[in-house]
Design a protein around this nucleic acid. Sequence first.
DNA 1: TCTGGGGTCCTAGGACCC
DNA 2: TCTGGGGTCCTAGGACCC
Length: 424
Amino acid sequence: MPKEYALIDCNNFYASCERAFRPDLRGRPLVVLSNNDGCIIARSNEVKDLGVGMGTPYFKCKAQLERHGIAVFSSNYALYGDLSARVMRVLTRFCPHVEIYSIDEAFVDLSGIPGGATQFARRLRATVEQWTSIPVSIGIGPTKTLAKLTNKFAKQQPRCHGVFNLNTSPDPDRVLRWTEIGDIWGIGPRHAKRLRKLGVNNAFDFRSLKQDWVKKKMTITGLQTLLELRGLPCHGLEAGPVSKKTIVSSRSFGHPVTSQEHLLEATAQYATRAAEKLRKQRSVASHILVFLQTNKFRLGQPQYSNTVSIPLIVSTAHTPTLIKAAQAGMTRIYREGYAYKKCGVMLSGLEASNGRWLSLLDIPPDAHSRHTPIMEAVDACNARWGRDTVKFAASGINGSWRMRREMRSPRYTTTWDELLGVQT
DNA sequence: TCTGGGGTCCTAGGACCC
DNA sequence: TCTGGGGTCCTAGGACCC
C-alpha cells in the first residue's frame, strides 16, 4: 500500500486573511504588499488573472492596480499569524500526524484513515473553511513531492472542488504532464531553464530522466526529487518543530539612513528581536553576525556593504549582551558618507540552552544564567501586554528608519483597540 | 520617491595537520 | 630534475523553499 501524504495549502493565504473580516472584499481583486510597501507578495485570483506577477515592485504596477480598482494592503503579520494558528489547530484536532511546513501549508499523513483519504480530506476542507473562513486545497499522493504537485492541480482544476487524490486517480500521469517543470517542488528557475532547453518541459518528462545524470547535474537533492516523482518517498513527516540553526532579524529601512546613531538603534532593535526568537526555542548563540548595505538598485549612488561576525565569549541569549556585541560590530563596519538601505543581525552556533558548552576562559559559571530570570520576566511582560511593552533604550523611540506600512488593515484578532466593531 | 524577510542544504576549494 | 597522500574543518557561493 502506498503512503497517503496530503498537503493542505491555504488559497491565496494573505489575501484570504484580509477578506476574513471584510466580506465586502469577497470577489473583489486585492493584493498584499511586503514590508515598506515594497513588492506584491500576495494576490487574489482576479489579480493573478490580470497577469500581475508575484514580487512585482509596487511602484511599477500602482497605476495598473488603480485602473482596475484593486484593493491594496500593507502586510499585517499579526493577523496572518493568528489566522494561520487557527487553521493549524483545526488540522491537529482531526489529523493524527501534522507537519506545519509554512505559515499557510501543512503536510499530514492520511495512510489508513478509516473511510478513505479522499472523503476525509473533503470533510476536513469544509471544516477548516467553516471554522476559520480560510479556503484550502488538498492534494494527496504517495510522496510529499507528489502531494505538493497534486495540490496545485486540485487548486486550479474547478472539477476537483479543492481536493484531488493521485493514488486513486485512473490517470495519474495526466497530472504529471500538466505540471510545468518549474512548478515542481525542488526545481527552481535556474534548473528549470536548463531543463527546458533540453526539452524537459513537465514533471512527466523529468521523471523519465536517468538517475545518474540528474545526480550529476542537480546533486543529491535533485535526485531525491526524481525519486519522489517516481513514488519512492525520500522525505518523511517531521515529528515536531525543529530548532533553527540560524536566526536572522533584518529590515529594509523606511527611508535611507546615513547616521551612525540611527544604524546603532536599528542594530539594537534587530538584536532584540533575534534574541527573543532565540529564547523562544530555548537556545543560546555562540556567534553574532552584523551586516549593512546601501541600496543596490540605486546604481548611480556609491555602494558599500559589509559583514562582520563576532564570537561571543560565552554562548548566551541575554539581550543586553547581544545588543552590545552587535553594536560593536556595527561600529566596526560603518563608513560615513553612504545612504544605507538595510542592516541586520544573524545569530549562529546555536545550542540548547540547558546543554551549553562552558567556556575555558575564566568566566564565573553563573555569569549568564543569573540573567535568565530577568529575560524571562521581560518575555512574559511582552507576551502578556504586547510586543515592546518592555523595551531597550538602545533601540531609540521613533527613528525614521522604522518601516512604512501605510495601508495596514486592523489587527482584528490580536489587539483590543482594533477589534471589529459591530453597530447596533 | 518607491524594489521583502527568513530559512535550509549541498558542493568546491582552501587551510591545516600528520 | 625533482616537489606525497590522505584526512578534517571551515567558508563562500549556489540553489532552493515559502
